[in-house]
Simulated scan of single mutants.
Amino acid sequence: MSTAALAILLVASMLAVGTTLRAADFRALADRPAVPVLAVLANVVVIPGLAVVLASLAGLGADATFGIVLAAAAPGGGTGALLTLHARGDLAVGAALQGVYAPLGLLSVPLWAWVAGYDPAPAGPGGVALVAGGLSGQVVPVAVGMWLRRRRPAVAQRVHEVSRRVADVLLAVVVLYFLATSGTRLPEVGWVTAGVIAVVVLACLSPALVPVFDPPAARRAVAMTTAVRNLSLALFVAAAAGPVVVLTLLAYGLLMYALSVPVALKLARTAAPVS
């Protein structure tokens, strides 16, 4: 998957989200501090910890365990806000959390790799640049979209439609990429490994159904942004690792989208539209 296509996907996704947001939406989020606090704890403590425990209980090999832990410890995937939009979740929550998760991954990935018994090379300047680029690709389009909605609402509506269509097409390309690169190679990863990945992804999606906090739209946003991990960062850290680690991460990406996209569409059918 080319870097340019991923960058366009990120920008188009966040522009589509930004054209639906107002500053008041973020001010309302500040009145609900439990939502971001619990979401951050889930992403940097609960999900990685669950991955370590499940991999240990399943008796997975070292490389497969390493790949799963890297994915589980890397929050802030670029399409989390887009899936929040499709799931009719709280877009202010989704956009804010996605921006918070990305830099946290620089800390949580090496920390959880160490907890799992590995000694990965630190992300270093390259990892920082990767995260910084991702953040700019999130913040700038959201800001532009919000400005358009406030100053040029008719233009904002047209931009929303086009950017959302572009993002949806590129998301489909990403899913097909994971299907082509790892769909036929799941037996190489092992069905037990695939099962562990599926359980981790389902745990990420569980906030949408578990009434930990209200409103439901916030839960859907937490679920979608938690389900989509920052696999670019995980693959960057795994660059010097063996092929099994990389294949495990690709399998994670396949199962991540295979489970989260249908859940997002199902939630959209059962949720009221978000204004």
Rank of each mutant, 00 (worst) to 15 (best):
residue 110 P to T: 04
residue 61 G to A: 12
residue 121 A to F: 01
residue 57 L to K: 10
residue 77 G to R: 00
residue 69 V to Y: 02
residue 81 A to W: 00
residue 62 A to P: 04
residue 146 M to P: 14
residue 160 H to Y: 12
residue 168 D to A: 15
residue 52 V to A: 13
residue 86 H to T: 04
residue 91 L to G: 01
residue 113 A to I: 11
residue 127 G to H: 03
residue 75 P to D: 02
residue 162 V to M: 12
residue 148 L to Y: 00
residue 96 A to R: 03
residue 104 L to W: 13
residue 86 H to W: 15
residue 85 L to H: 03
residue 115 V to F: 03
residue 91 L to Y: 01
residue 127 G to F: 14
residue 140 V to S: 07
residue 169 V to N: 00
residue 80 G to I: 02
residue 57 L to Y: 05
residue 99 G to N: 07
residue 126 G to E: 12
residue 156 A to R: 11
residue 134 G to V: 06
residue 138 Q to Y: 10
residue 55 A to L: 12
residue 56 S to I: 12
residue 118 Y to P: 00
residue 117 G to V: 14
residue 88 R to Y: 08
residue 168 D to Y: 13
residue 66 F to M: 15
residue 54 L to D: 00
residue 75 P to W: 07
residue 90 D to T: 00
residue 81 A to G: 09
residue 121 A to T: 04
residue 172 A to P: 02
residue 72 A to T: 06
residue 52 V to W: 13
residue 100 V to Q: 00
residue 134 G to L: 12
residue 95 A to N: 06
residue 82 L to R: 01
residue 75 P to T: 06
residue 56 S to C: 13
residue 121 A to V: 01
residue 115 V to I: 15
residue 78 G to S: 15
residue 166 V to M: 09
residue 159 V to Q: 10
residue 103 P to Q: 11
residue 74 A to L: 06
residue 87 A to H: 02
residue 161 E to I: 14
residue 98 Q to D: 03
residue 66 F to G: 09
residue 158 R to A: 12
residue 98 Q to R: 07
residue 101 Y to E: 04
residue 112 W to T: 11
residue 142 V to Y: 04
residue 151 R to E: 14
residue 114 W to V: 13
residue 57 L to W: 14
residue 108 S to G: 11
residue 159 V to Y: 09
residue 73 A to P: 01
residue 138 Q to D: 00
residue 62 A to M: 05
residue 99 G to Y: 02
residue 82 L to Y: 01
residue 66 F to N: 09
residue 142 V to W: 02
residue 146 M to I: 09
residue 148 L to E: 00
residue 93 V to R: 00
residue 131 V to K: 08
residue 51 A to N: 05
residue 166 V to C: 11
residue 170 L to T: 11
residue 68 I to D: 08
residue 158 R to N: 08
residue 66 F to K: 12
residue 113 A to L: 14
residue 161 E to P: 11
residue 114 W to N: 13
residue 139 V to N: 04
residue 75 P to H: 08
residue 88 R to N: 11
residue 163 S to D: 00
residue 104 L to T: 05
residue 103 P to I: 14
residue 61 G to E: 04
residue 52 V to P: 01
residue 159 V to R: 04
residue 104 L to I: 10
residue 144 V to E: 08
residue 81 A to L: 03
residue 52 V to K: 07
residue 59 G to S: 10
residue 128 V to K: 13
residue 121 A to R: 15
residue 54 L to V: 13
residue 110 P to H: 11
residue 81 A to V: 01
residue 81 A to M: 00
residue 76 G to T: 07
residue 119 D to V: 15
residue 147 W to E: 06
residue 113 A to Y: 07
residue 68 I to Q: 02
residue 131 V to H: 07
residue 122 P to L: 15
residue 91 L to W: 00
residue 80 G to S: 07
residue 148 L to F: 08
residue 85 L to C: 05
residue 122 P to I: 13
residue 127 G to V: 14
residue 66 F to W: 07
residue 122 P to Y: 11
residue 165 R to W: 12
residue 121 A to M: 05
residue 93 V to I: 08
residue 164 R to I: 03
residue 157 Q to L: 15
residue 55 A to C: 15
residue 114 W to S: 14
residue 166 V to Q: 06
residue 151 R to P: 02
residue 51 A to R: 06
residue 95 A to L: 04
residue 118 Y to I: 13
